[in-house]
Simulated scan of single mutants.
Amino acid sequence: MNSGNTEPGVQFLLSLIDPGDAAAVRERLGIGVPVPVDDEQAGWRLDRLGAPRAVLLWMLERDDPDTNRVVFHRDRVDDALKRDILRGLPFGSAAGPLPVRVNCGLQWCSHREPHIPASGRGLIGGLREARTMGAARVAARAVSRPDWAAVAEADRAEPLPGFARWALGERIDCPPELRAQFGSHPKFVNRLRNAGIVEPRDYVERGRPPRDVLAVLHFGTQLFPHRVGEAAAVLAPSVRSELGTNLDAWAVLARLLRTFAGTVPELVATCGAIARGE
């Protein structure tokens, strides 16, 4: 393995141990330190890795205009998110409005606010009259960041139809407390997971394959570091205990990472066991 094709996943795991120990591992594996990439390149890498849709929200939560520009030009960003980005609405804790910097310098890029039709019955009325998944998704597109409180209140007063709840829950910016209000039926939870709505802990513990999960976290260190910190807190204890300063365990990891089909915790535990001869 050389520094030109270093596994981003190995680099991420190395960031969880002491820098001096990480340097010894890099020497053993024949790899260098991570090669910096700009934010646009990191966003492109996340696309290629099939990162869950939730990473788009994790990026927006930074309330950083330059990061918002990277999100705005991702293929998976729907019109509702683009509208709120163009309005300078914060997705994190910033007061807003945020500066808007979405110009990518290409003539074919449209920076106009997308047209999102509203129901003649109003926002809540449109959600209540949705009787198909398609109609519910159309109605859910009309919800903007300031509208979520009203949606939650309407659902408490009289539960919204199931299709509307599903469509709203699949919006990556649906507040977690509103999703919890919608319920925790396994079918609903699985639908959200399949739609790429995950939390960092769930992604680390259940995501597959490990090579892609760890690479997403590696590039996330610059695009959503606050969320990567949550993932690192989950992984760090096992990485330090199973791999730590054991150079043989890291060598096993470098070999297995490309093809291992389990989860990240399973990979780390397997490498530690093999190195110990278990």
Rank of each mutant, 00 (worst) to 15 (best):
16 L>V: 03
16 L>F: 05
17 I>Y: 03
17 I>S: 00
17 I>Q: 00
17 I>A: 03
18 D>M: 00
18 D>L: 03
18 D>I: 01
18 D>Y: 03
19 P>C: 09
19 P>M: 11
19 P>Y: 11
19 P>L: 08
20 G>Y: 04
20 G>R: 14
20 G>A: 13
20 G>N: 09
21 D>S: 07
21 D>Y: 05
22 A>P: 06
22 A>V: 04
22 A>H: 11
22 A>F: 07
23 A>G: 12
23 A>P: 02
24 A>L: 14
24 A>F: 03
24 A>T: 04
24 A>N: 07
24 A>P: 02
25 V>K: 03
25 V>H: 02
25 V>A: 00
25 V>W: 00
26 R>K: 05
26 R>I: 00
26 R>T: 00
26 R>E: 02
27 E>P: 01
27 E>K: 14
27 E>V: 07
27 E>T: 15
28 R>H: 03
29 L>W: 01
29 L>I: 01
29 L>D: 02
29 L>C: 02
30 G>I: 08
30 G>N: 00
30 G>S: 08
30 G>T: 05
30 G>V: 04
31 I>F: 06
31 I>Y: 04
31 I>R: 04
31 I>E: 01
31 I>G: 04
32 G>K: 02
33 V>W: 04
33 V>D: 05
33 V>H: 04
33 V>K: 05
33 V>C: 00
34 P>T: 09
34 P>F: 13
34 P>I: 10
34 P>K: 10
34 P>Y: 13
34 P>R: 13
34 P>E: 13
34 P>C: 08
35 V>L: 04
36 P>V: 11
36 P>R: 11
36 P>C: 08
37 V>M: 13
37 V>E: 11
37 V>K: 12
38 D>H: 11
38 D>E: 13
38 D>F: 10
39 D>S: 15
39 D>T: 06
40 E>Q: 11
40 E>L: 14
40 E>I: 06
41 Q>W: 06
41 Q>F: 01
42 A>I: 06
42 A>H: 12
42 A>S: 14
42 A>N: 09
42 A>K: 06
43 G>A: 15
43 G>Q: 12
43 G>I: 07
43 G>Y: 12
43 G>V: 10
43 G>W: 12
43 G>E: 07
43 G>T: 10
44 W>C: 05
44 W>M: 12
44 W>G: 02
44 W>D: 10
45 R>W: 14
45 R>C: 10
46 L>E: 06
46 L>K: 06
46 L>M: 15
46 L>Y: 08
47 D>A: 13
47 D>T: 14
47 D>Y: 03
48 R>T: 12
48 R>M: 14
48 R>P: 01
48 R>D: 09
48 R>W: 03
48 R>G: 07
49 L>F: 14
49 L>N: 09
50 G>V: 07
50 G>I: 02
50 G>M: 08
50 G>N: 10
50 G>Q: 07
51 A>R: 06
51 A>C: 11
51 A>H: 10
51 A>K: 01
51 A>V: 11
51 A>W: 06
51 A>S: 15
51 A>L: 04
52 P>K: 11
52 P>G: 11
52 P>V: 06
52 P>D: 09
